[in-house]
Structures are given as structure tokens and as C-alpha cells.
């Protein structure tokens, strides 16, 4: 599903972000990307959703070949992905319903298609009673659930999450992980960058550890490791 070959990324100022990564991720897999701060996790994640482009090497996601893709095709690539961030990135002036509906509006769905689907995903993340609230009226965990609802509303093939539990307490993190695992059960691939040792250890999945811009470990049912 995702094939990454000899990918390097050097920033404009000469700083190397990724020094050479090759790996494949299959449909329906759950992959943790772990590593210390500055190891290149975020660079790796950003390259997956084409926020950054590899300096050398290539990424292929389904039918999208990143090396030959035109800029105009990037939006269509992102429609196949759901992206979740540590800081949620919700629009403060829109209600919860509108924040989620927004992701369907921009791909030009009609209101008749949007309303039932948005209510359905908000039910999946347990926020069906708060559709008219604004993000500022919700807790961090609830905001992250809205962000997840927005990410999955268009039924993406892959959910990319960059530190989704980074700002949350352990109990709330657990709730978020429950939701993410449920999404994975529906055959959506999950790629999640995280620092959260408890999460990685308690819900074991494939672990890719990045350090110094290289993959130093790739384990099928891995744990966080001992060195950190």
C-alpha cells in the first residue's frame, strides 16, 4: 500500500532530516513510528502526506507516485488520507459539526451527503451530543476526537497521526487509542508517530524506530524499548 524506497530528506539549510529509509506498509497495518525528539519522525510523517518532498528516493502510495506527481494532484492524494495532529488543528470559529463537515465540503460533497455522514462519525467518537459546541468549549481529549472524526469522515485508506496523545493525560490517551484501534479494525491503515511509551507497550503493533534519520528497528509486535 505504501512503499518507501531509499528516501532521504535534507533541509534547505543543509540539515539532514532523513538519511535513507526503505520500508513497506500494508493495507490494514497499525504502525508506530517512535524515536527521540529530532530523530526525524515528523519529517517522515510530513513526507507521507506530501507536506515535504523527499530529496532523493521515492514514495508510492496506492496509485500515487510522489516522484512524478504534479502539485495539482496533491489534494487528491490527501483525500485518501486522514491526518491528525498533536494540536488538533480545529477551526475555532466553526462548531464541532461544521469542523467535521468542512472536510466533506472541500471535496464538494452535497449537504444531503454531508449531514448523515458527519453525525455518524461524531457518534463513532462519542460526541453526538456536542455537535453545536465550539472547540473552545471542549476538553483536549474531546477536541482530539473531533480531529479524528474529521480525519475519517471521508473514509480514508490510511490515518496518519502525529503525536495524537501528546497533549493528553493517560486516561484520555487511552480513550483516543480505543477509537484509533476501532478505526484500524475497519481495515484502515494507521501510521502513528508517538512518544507515548505506555501506549506503545500496552497496545502492541508494528514498531518502526527512527534515530538520527535512520530506521534502527522494525519489529512486528514491538514495544517502546528500554533506552528512553
Amino acid at each position: 500500500m505504501i512503499s518507501i524506497k531509499d528516501v532521504t530528506k535534507t533541509y534547505d539549510n543543509g540539515v539532514p532530516g532523513i538519511k535513507g529509509i526503505t520500508l513497506d506498509i500494508d493495507q490494514g497495518e497499525f504502525v508506530y513510528v517512535i524515536g527521540p525528539s529530532g530523530a526525524g519522525k515528523s519529517t517522515f510523517i510530513k513526507m507521507l502526506y506530501h507536506q515535504l518532498t523527499p530529496t532523493t528516493g521515492n514514495i508510492v502510495f496506492n496509485n500515487f507516485d510522489y516522484s512524478t506527481m504534479k502539485p495539482s494532484e496533491v489534494p487528491y492524494l490527501r483525500r485518501e488520507m486522514g491526518i491528525v495532529f498533536q494540536d488538533f488543528k480545529l477551526l475555532p470559529r466553526l462548531t464541532i459539526f461544521e469542523n467535521v463537515a468542512y472536510a466533506m465540503q472541500v471535496i464538494e460533497k452535497t449537504d444531503a451527503e454531508i449531514k448523515p455522514r458527519v453525525l455518524d462519525v461524531l457518534r463513532q467518537v462519542g460526541l453526538e451530543t456536542k455537535v453545536r459546541r465550539f472547540p473552545s468549549e471542549l476538553s483536549g481529549g474531546e477536541q482530539q476526537r473531533v480531529a479524528i472524526a474529521r480525519a475519517i469522515v471521508n473514509k480514508p485508506k490510511v490515518l496518519i497521526a502525529d503525536e495524537p496523545t501528546g497533549n493528553l493525560d493517560p486516561d484520555t490517551s487511552d480513550e483516543i487509542m480505543d477509537i484509533i484501534e476501532k478505526i484500524n479494525d475497519q481495515d484502515t491503515t494507521i501510521i502513528m508517530a508517538t512518544h507515548n511509551r505506555d501506549v506503545v507497550n500496552s497496545r502492541q503493533h508494528r514498531v518502526i524506530e527512527i534515530a538520527g534519520g535512520n530506521i534502527v528497528r522494525d519489529e512486528k509486535k514491538g514495544a517502546y524499548g528500554v533506552e528512553d
Binding site: P75, K89, L91, A103, V106, I107
Partner: peptide, 13 residues
């Protein structure tokens, strides 16, 4: 920021 979010969810230019 809003434009950034629009782009992330796949809005065309």
C-alpha cells in the same frame, strides 16, 4: 491556518 487545514483535508487550490 484555515487555509492550511483546507489543504490538509484535500481542498484543491
Amino acid at each position: 491556518e484555515e487555509i492550511g487545514v483546507m489543504r490538509l483535508v484535500g481542498a484543491t487550490n
